[in-house]
Simulated assay, not measured.
Amino acid sequence: MTTDVRLGIAHVPTHAPETLRALAEAAEAAGLDDLWVWEDCFKQSGLASAAAALAWTDRIRVGLGLLPVPLRSTAVTAMEVATLARTFPGRFVPGVGHGVQEWMGQSGVRVSSPLTLLREHTEALRRLLAGDEVTTSGRYVSLDAVRLDWPPTEPVPLWLGGVGPRSLALVGELGDGLILANALTPDDVRGSVAAARSAAQDAGRELTDVHATLIATTGPRAQERLDAELPQWGAEPGRGIGAAGDAASIAAAVRTLVDAGATAVAIQPSASEPDLPAFARFLGAEVRPLLTSVG
């Protein structure tokens, strides 16, 4: 049986912005499906990274997980997403979330109801990207006859991130895809997918796309490097999070996430990874063939 998982690589802000170009070009040359960029406070701009990666490549899909909605007005987000979607049609996947509340507080944009803001932002953003004129007056999002002059020429998938039960329910209700956190066990993934898909079914929708991230290391001291990496993401070694070892070990971990409901998996290099382009080539040449021959 052949798996249909999309295999990608994540450029995480533990690596400097200037390392992105070589990674993007190597990931595309290696035949990977996706390149995912992040927006973490106060590290790197997700939209700037996505725009650069799209410009440096021709085929690979570039995903952005996630844009914290308190940091931007809905109109600005719509303009930014529409510009990239028109310039690189079919290759950009934006994702939005309510942000890490501690960071939102540091930025002076923390709200008392993050999920209300995410709902209002997502609903208005979707209408703007569809080319509608939007007038709305919500608790947080207010627009007066706003319409994009240059909306996307084709539908743009709008993915949402979630961890807690209420966030996952909102993803199922409104999202075109679910973006999961990076340090989850397969059981965590399975439970999150089930919750989001149940909410989608209750809303009369179908949630098919699920993006998961797998922290992985290979080469010398792979397990030691993985164990040192996990605490940076709030995870403890020995709990079945991440993968360390050769291509077969990493492919097996990817398949476990697919069995738990993921349809796209991005491999996240550790902060100690010395050669990001070589790691991308390893994934394309050695890990990907194992996923297309074994299900």
Rank of each mutant, 00 (worst) to 15 (best):
Q201P: 00
L115A: 04
S192M: 12
A183N: 07
T218N: 09
A266W: 01
T2Q: 11
V258M: 05
S45G: 13
D58S: 15
R59W: 09
R197A: 06
L276F: 09
P155K: 08
V171Y: 00
P274T: 08
E154M: 12
G191F: 05
S272Q: 13
D58R: 13
S45N: 12
T14I: 10
Q201G: 11
L125G: 03
G108P: 03
P94L: 03
L214Y: 06
V76A: 10
G161L: 02
T74H: 00
F88Q: 02
G261K: 01
I250P: 00
G31D: 04
G204C: 04
D209E: 14
A285H: 13
D33W: 11
S293T: 15
D4F: 11
A27S: 14
T122I: 07
L125S: 03
S293R: 14
L129H: 05
F282Y: 14
G65E: 06
D34H: 14
Q268G: 05
W159H: 15
G177E: 08
R288E: 12
D58G: 15
D149E: 10
E236F: 06
L178T: 07
I267G: 02
L117W: 02
D246K: 08
P94G: 06
L143C: 09
L84C: 07
A251W: 06
T74R: 00
E18Y: 11
P274Q: 10
D209I: 09
S270E: 05
E206K: 10
L84M: 14
D4Q: 14
A253H: 05
W159F: 15
L143P: 06
V93S: 01
T135G: 11
D209R: 14
A260T: 01
L184H: 02
T2R: 12
A48K: 04
S49R: 03
V62N: 01
W103M: 12
S293C: 09
A248T: 15
A194K: 08
R21Q: 11
A203T: 07
A195L: 14
R61H: 12
